[in-house]
Amino acid sequence: MIRLSLAALLFSATAALAYPVTVQSCDRELTIDAAPARAISNDVNLTEMMLVLGLRDRMVGYTGISGWKTLDEEMRAGVAELPELSAKYPTKEVLAGAEADFFFAGWNYGMKVGGEVTPETLQPLGIQTYELTESCIHIGPKAKSSMDDMYNDILNLGRIFGVGAKADELVAGWQARLTEATADVNRSAPLRVFVYDSGEEAPFTAGAYAMPTAMIEAAGGVNIMADLEKSWAEIAWEPVVERNPQVVVIVNYGDVTADQKIAFMKENPAFANIDAVKNDRFVVLEYVEATPGPRNIKAVEKLVAGFRGN
């Protein structure tokens, strides 16, 4: 018992010496004086980033999941002891009422530009905010989507919470797994791929700055909307038909199922000549796989198999 206590004290002293830490959060530097103890995350993928780093005991809850999507068995187990504080985007009152000291969110992932909840509005409440890297395009320029966007968030969270070694280990493992999964990918003729998130009158899809673009490229394809200078956006169906995707990636969540989205495309005469529809080539990704988070590597593996027709 004495040895354990001494080890704990030494660990605490070492951890204390690591602060303050400064990380880049979109267009600002975020300085953390001590590891957050009452954190809140928004959305299923951001919450899973916290959980995979072993931070559940540093959290007082999460927001923004049940209002749009459901938790799978793995996620339900992960958050079993945590309350959902808001079904959709939280208010300042919700976050302050939980006595939060940290909010992990993103633009259109719990925060809206010019909205009530922003890093600036939360700062006076004693709540510091780290912004999801993928979402930074909503407030200024950023590089095109890459797998490094997700790695960056994990590494920054590791520094913020004093679990940098764990974050390094996770990222190294994912990088090795990604290298293995894509080792035999033929990149000489990338498949044309369309990401169908939702919408019948006008599809909601992934552009240059959304994570699926990076995952599609890692798997040997090219997003037909990679010239769309946005992350996620609504477009018209005409460019989809004109660019003739060979594979359609379906994002599965919400009230309209993946099967229903596939049926809509297959039964609509306007899409009859699209190669993906003619050849029945659809790959389904769950929302938590299509948005930045720990399941992105699994998503690339699914895309590699789907592009090969497996």
Rank of each mutant, 00 (worst) to 15 (best):
G114Y: 14
M75E: 04
P20N: 08
G78S: 03
S25R: 06
I2F: 14
G114F: 08
E180V: 12
Q123K: 08
T63L: 01
A263E: 12
P203R: 14
E169F: 07
E74D: 11
P294C: 11
P294D: 04
K261V: 11
D255C: 08
T63P: 03
Q246L: 15
G207C: 06
V23N: 08
A167P: 00
E234V: 12
G221S: 05
W232I: 05
Y196C: 00
A15P: 10
L6E: 12
E169I: 12
Q175L: 09
T63E: 02
S198I: 11
G199P: 05
I137A: 04
E81H: 07
Q128D: 15
E48S: 14
D101E: 13
G221A: 12
E120L: 08
R295V: 00
G110R: 00
D280W: 03
A214P: 02
D280A: 13
G64H: 01
S231K: 11
L125M: 13
M215Q: 07
L51Q: 13
A172K: 15
E74R: 06
N42Y: 09
T291A: 12
T121A: 13
V21A: 01
A143C: 11
I297M: 13
A236N: 10
I40M: 03
V21P: 00
S231C: 12
A8D: 06
A34T: 08
L155S: 15
E242G: 08
E169P: 12
T121L: 13
I2S: 08
K302A: 02
T257E: 07
W232D: 01
Y89G: 15
G140Y: 09
A80L: 14
G140I: 13
L46F: 05
V60T: 09
Q260N: 06
A202C: 15
M59E: 01
L132P: 02
V185F: 07
G64C: 06
L157C: 05
Y130Q: 09
P292W: 04
G64K: 05
A210V: 06
T179Y: 11
A236W: 04
M59R: 00
T14M: 07
A219V: 06
V283M: 05
R308E: 09
D255F: 03
K298S: 12
